[in-house]
Structures are given as C-alpha cells and as structure tokens.
Simulated scan of single mutants.
Amino acid sequence: MKPVLILLLLAGLAGTAGAADFTLTSPTVEPNGTLGTSQVFNGFGCTGGNVSPALAWQNPPAGTRSFALTAYDPDAPTGSGWWHWVVYNIPATVSALPENAGRVDGSGLPAGAQQGRTDYGVAGFGGACPPVGDKPHRYRFTLHALKTDRLDVPADASAALIGFMISGQRLGSVTLQATYGR
C-alpha cells in the first residue's frame, strides 16, 4: 500500500471530498516504520535524543486558518494513552516544522505557535518511552487543519483540553504513524 494512502486511511479521510490531497510526510519518520533513537525520550529509563521529527504537509482543506499538531501513543498503559507533543496556533502559511522544533523553550517553532503541556508534565516534545517488554507502541503524529486563526487556551492547558478545542475547530486531519518498543 502506498504511504499516502496509508496516511489517508489512518486519518479517516479517504472518503472526504478534497481530502486525498492533504498529506503529512517526514524525512525523519517512515510511515509505519520504527522511530529512531533520536525520537526516544531521555529519562524514565529510556536513553534517546528526545528530538521531534521533521514534518511537512501540503494541500490542507479549503478554509484552513491555522494548524495544530499532536503526537499521541494510544498503547500507553494509562487507560487514556500518552500525549507526547501538542503544538497549536501554527499559522496557515506554515507548511513544515524542522527537526527538533519541539524544544521545551519553543525556540524551534514558527512565530505565534505554542506548545501545550504533555503527559511528561511540561511543554515540548517528549519522545517515545514504552515500558520494557510491552509490544511496540504506536506513535501517531496528527496534523489538524483548523477553521480558526488561534485556539484560546490557558498557558498551562492539558493536552486533553487542547484536544477538545482542536476537535471543535477541525476541518480535516492527517496522521503519520510509527512504532517503537523496548
């Protein structure tokens, strides 16, 4: 199956008009591949670079006024998954984030973009770190095209609250998934 088709199926967009053109790619992460050590957390018993992958997108839905990006592990043994990265208020004129854009201080993000608090307790990218012996976990990088210029959320908002706000403003989304296990 071609990577673009896989991305569309994961995002649930295959039947949506015009959605076939909305894509999310990465020179760092292969669709359905394995995350490299650069994208692994450095802590909690994991040793990695804790570097967010480079991501690029094209052909968002008509009417897109901003983007949000989430990185989520649905397999974390928490009962609610694990939020690894939340970026919102990405201007509609932006079509890529460079590798390591998810630094805690936000200095790698485009002007106006903000990072929400992850399940590691801080803003910024937090890499993969599944428990030893678990089956490989899935890591879903999802780009959301939004119909608003910005999400107004408190600076210390949880990933769940930001996700709720994203859901209310989403025009479309596309997902790039990879796995990692220890």
Rank of each mutant, 00 (worst) to 15 (best):
P3Y: 12
V4W: 10
L5V: 10
L5P: 00
I6S: 07
L9Y: 05
L10P: 00
G12V: 11
G15S: 00
G15P: 01
T16K: 02
A19M: 00
D21G: 03
F22N: 05
F22Y: 12
T23F: 07
T25G: 07
S26T: 11
P27S: 13
N32F: 13
L35D: 04
L35G: 04
G36S: 12
S38H: 03
S38F: 00
V40S: 08
N42Q: 06
N42G: 00
C46Q: 04
G48A: 07
N50I: 00
N50T: 01
S52A: 08
L55D: 09
A56H: 05
Q58Y: 04
P60V: 10
G63A: 13
T64W: 00
R65M: 14
R65N: 11
A68L: 05
A68D: 04
T70R: 13
A71P: 04
A76L: 06
T78R: 02
G79D: 04
G79C: 04
S80G: 14
H84G: 15
H84K: 09
W85F: 15
W85P: 02
V87K: 03
N89M: 14
I90H: 11
A92F: 03
S95L: 02
S95T: 15
S95R: 15
L97F: 01
P98Q: 07
E99F: 05
N100Q: 15
R103I: 14
R103C: 05
V104D: 14
V104C: 03
D105N: 06
D105L: 01
D105C: 00
G106K: 11
S107I: 02
G108T: 10
G108H: 12
L109Q: 14
P110H: 02
A111S: 07
G116H: 07
T118L: 01
D119E: 05
Y120M: 04
G121P: 08
V122F: 13
F125N: 06
F125G: 04
A128E: 05
P130W: 12
G133C: 06
P136C: 08
R138D: 10
R140C: 07
A145H: 07
L151V: 12
D156C: 03
A157C: 01
A159G: 13
A160D: 13
A160I: 05
G163A: 01
G163Y: 01
F164W: 09
F164M: 11
S167C: 06
S167A: 15
Q169W: 08
R170N: 11
L171V: 07
G172D: 15
G172L: 11
S173Y: 00
V174N: 13
V174R: 15
L176Q: 02
L176N: 02
L176P: 06
Q177T: 08
A178T: 03
Y180D: 08
R182G: 09
